[in-house]
Design a protein around this nucleic acid. Structure first.
Lengths: 69, 69
DNA sequence: TGGCGATGTAAAGATATCTTTACATCGCCA
DNA sequence: TGGCGATGTAAAGATATCTTTACATCGCCA
């Protein structure tokens, strides 16, 4: 069973009306990192994932899911 | 504010009476990785973190916390 | 029209995560 | 005693994560 991480960052971000630029500033990371994670170029580190949960004030299940293939 | 990830993997593992070797086999990773993460040599990837939550059947807060310094 | 905010992407380089192989120590118990 | 399971550690190498710099496109609106 191959497991892949999926995320709903873009959906949550748009629902809150925040730009990638704003998020990058707030989280002290680059806009390119957010963009890459949103477009599933790679997964965020656990540290960044925890910061995202805190930033959006949501549980991990609301952002990240471990799915097959 | 410098944030660091702390984990309680060793405590949870010992509470469940599982060895690092057993965990490594179950999770399909190496024993060295588990050991390094338990001893805070580095953080697990988000993918491994999600697998650990699933494996121990706990929430993220029960394993990982984002602390100052 | 043209300027601007937002987004997507690329490439080079630094650092983090993980594997493989190997060796060492410690506690326990036959 | 000595053998074994469990744990800690190290070093080399592969891949993943993230930054910096740069360029391009798209939609909107003055």
């Amino acid at each position: 069973m191959l497991l892949k991480v999926r995320n709903r960052i873009k959906e949550i971000r748009l629902a809150k009306g925040i730009s990638q630029i704003q998020m990058a500033e707030d989280l002290q990371i680059t806009r390119q990192t957010i963009n890459a994670v949103e477009n599933h170029k790679y997964n965020p580190s656990l540290e960044l994932a925890l910061k995202l949960m805190k930033y959006f004030n949501v549980t991990i299940d609301e952002i990240f899911t471990l799915e097959e293939d």
